[in-house]
Design a protein around this nucleic acid. Structure first.
Lengths: 143, 143
DNA sequence: TCGAATATTTTGAAATTCAAACAATAATAT
DNA sequence: ATATTATTGTTTGAATTTCAAAATATTCGA
């Protein structure tokens, strides 16, 4: 591997290893009582086009069974509610309650700070390269 | 947030959510019986300067107690051994056995394929931008 | 309508995690 | 030297998270 490749690899591994612990710490300081796992479920519900169990689980890379238990506790804590999708009553859709939206606001602020740190000092055409590079990583993981 | 920032954010979240499941699948197909967690422990042992429990746990972003249980099973399965560091007998250092090195070879191949996919079609000066951008993300997470 | 396919929950068990208590060794201060 | 404090790691006890497989409900297609 070339020097740049070795570096990219180490950086990705490092970021991956640290990100969860640090996000978790940030949330705790923001007064949020949920685990990172639970917050990521909320985030996926918000982002996914149709928030059914199957789609949310796919977005998170976990099984639907795992998601069921996660949603159980979130429902119990009052962050989300379940409802049947009228057009296809097999599907269970998840709705975010106000409590969840507050948490997601705090989490989004953290993400924005992170992204700003990345973009600091980058020029416009460099932004483009970064977006394209990350697109490649993402599509590599999707196929 | 600008459009580029929104995209970067979504890409990072996507990559993060998928990477574990896919790495795990790749390993299974390579005939490796270990979980991704266990493989990441081996990886950290290999990378860290002095493979003591504290340093390895810090590299992984988990508590030393959690690492102890992970190392217990890896010792039991014959992938690593523990030994006391003579210069400071409080420290327990971890040594990779041949079995572990084989697994890490398979895992490294996967990482190389991933990195190659990223670098495909990128030009040299674009490589530099990517490295610098990721360095920023990494240093953001370290401070 | 009947059987296959899809969507989700339940079940049972294993893996992973943490915080706090405990034990051993080293460093510092008195 | 010896007591105190700090560092390093393991153990404990409990909670969380995960999965695969079985069970249930609904929809779709023949």
């Amino acid at each position: 591997m070339s020097e740049a490749k070795v570096m990219i690899n180490e950086l990705l591994v490092d970021i991956f290893n640290r990100i969860l612990a640090i996000e978790s710490e940030e949330l705790k300081q923001g007064g949020v009582k949920l685990s990172m796992n639970e917050v990521h479920v909320l985030e996926a519900v918000q982002v996914v086009a149709e928030p059914s169990m199957t789609f949310i689980a796919a977005k998170l890379g976990i099984t639907v069974g795992s998601l069921t238990t996660a949603v159980n506790t979130l429902v119990q804590k009052g962050y989300v509610t379940r409802y049947r999708f009228p057009e296809d009553r097999r599907k269970v859709l998840i709705k975010l309650e106000d409590k969840a939206l507050e948490v997601l606001d705090i989490h989004r602020e953290y993400h924005e700070k992170m992204i700003d740190a990345i973009f600091e000092d980058l020029k416009v055409d460099e932004d483009l390269v970064l977006v394209q590079s990350l697109s490649k990583v993402a599509s590599y993981f999707k196929k």
